[in-house]
Amino acid sequence: MKENTLENKMYDLIIVGGGPAGLSAGIYAMRAAMHTVLIEKGMPGGQIALTKDVENYPGIEEVGGFELCEKFLNHAKRYNLEIRENEVVSVEPGVDFHEVVLAGGERLHTHSVILAPGGSARKLGVPGEMEQYGKGVSYCATCDGFFFRGKTVVVVGGGDTALEDALYLSKICAKVYLVHRRDEFRGSRILQQRVFAEPRITLVLDSVLDDIAADDQGVTGVTVKNVKTEETHNVATDGVFIFVGFLPNNALVPAGVKMNAAGYVVTDEKCETSLPGIFAVGDVRQKYANQIVLAAADGCVAALAAAHYVETRKAQAARK
């Protein structure tokens, strides 16, 4: 009787994280008729909710990041996916089932888990960065750009996000300094062409930030060092926007799951980790590139693989 009670409360799949990878997994899990719950501690959508424009999602030539989030979310809700707003504090693997522990102590039992916690903005680690966070230092142009309308800002980075947000800020700020440690950008060619053509953007290449200066009102300037000549100079600015990559949010990855040296989860082609029944998708998973379309694909693959895993487990249990 106890086992039946436990089985009735058990999920086929628990998805941890509500970004594109997690929501995509939710869609495919519901289509596979799995008893599924998605747990997200904040607003569903992940990093794309902070993106002004998305121009590289196949089939949609241009869409706002928040709007695309809503499309993912509404699609998942169409299949009646259970979505709980809560924080997962740990994922505990087991032999018969896995447990997901929520803030407050509630324990959920499940046959399989898809980890989709995403990533977080990488910090520069320079003096003044953390002290001035929220007082002129930001990691999200679409969140905070409004506060710098008509002012001067510094953008740090050379990838797609840095270029996209420099272009976004150039539309509302008087001047944008784009600081990059190399002499060429890593971002896509089309974005580079737009940056080069924008008169309000001044390139500061082969350079890094050494220091962020501030007064009682917030950021007042930065010290920039040329990595080739080691010469430094000061740039007066009202704000600093930092886009130097992301780190995987791997705090919930259980012990025993294989990760690479950078902290990304290593999986097979099914997005399954080294622990059976536990899958990793999106920005936390080791792969060649992090793009929305790849995160969505991860979610699809992991959900289909999880469905097969759970069906196999149930069939084996029925034969015993």
Rank of each mutant, 00 (worst) to 15 (best):
L50K: 10
L50V: 06
L50T: 14
T51N: 06
T51C: 06
T51K: 04
T51W: 04
T51P: 03
T51L: 04
K52Q: 03
K52T: 01
K52F: 00
D53A: 13
V54Q: 13
V54Y: 10
V54R: 11
E55P: 01
E55V: 11
E55Y: 02
E55F: 02
N56A: 13
N56L: 12
N56E: 12
N56G: 08
N56R: 10
N56T: 13
N56Y: 07
Y57G: 09
Y57W: 08
Y57I: 08
Y57E: 13
P58L: 10
P58R: 07
P58T: 14
P58N: 13
G59P: 08
G59V: 15
G59R: 12
G59M: 12
G59F: 13
G59Y: 09
G59A: 15
I60H: 06
I60W: 04
I60L: 15
I60G: 03
E61F: 03
E61L: 10
E61G: 02
E61Y: 00
E62C: 15
E62P: 00
V63P: 01
V63W: 01
V63R: 00
V63I: 15
V63L: 02
V63A: 04
V63G: 00
G64T: 08
G64S: 12
G64H: 01
G64P: 02
G64E: 07
G64D: 01
G65W: 06
G65D: 05
G65S: 09
G65Y: 06
F66M: 15
F66K: 12
F66G: 01
E67T: 15
E67P: 01
E67M: 13
E67K: 09
E67H: 10
E67S: 10
L68N: 07
L68E: 03
C69E: 06
C69G: 11
C69S: 14
C69A: 12
C69F: 00
C69Q: 09
C69D: 01
E70A: 05
E70Q: 09
E70C: 04
E70P: 00
E70V: 10
E70H: 06
F72L: 05
F72W: 02
F72K: 03
F72D: 01
F72E: 02
L73G: 03
L73S: 06
L73R: 07
N74W: 03
N74Q: 15
N74P: 00
H75S: 05
H75Y: 06
H75N: 08
H75P: 03
H75G: 01
H75V: 08
A76M: 08
A76K: 05
A76Y: 05
A76F: 04
A76T: 11
K77F: 05
K77M: 15
K77Y: 07
K77S: 13
K77A: 11
R78S: 13
R78N: 14
R78L: 13
R78E: 13
R78I: 09
R78W: 04
Y79A: 11
Y79D: 13
Y79C: 09
Y79F: 14
Y79R: 07
Y79K: 11
N80I: 02
N80A: 11
N80S: 08
N80T: 04
L81Y: 04
L81M: 05
L81A: 03
E82T: 14
E82K: 13
I83N: 12
I83S: 08
I83P: 04
I83W: 04
I83G: 04
R84S: 05
R84F: 05
R84L: 11
R84P: 03
R84V: 15
E85L: 09
E85H: 11
E85R: 09
E85V: 09
E85P: 01
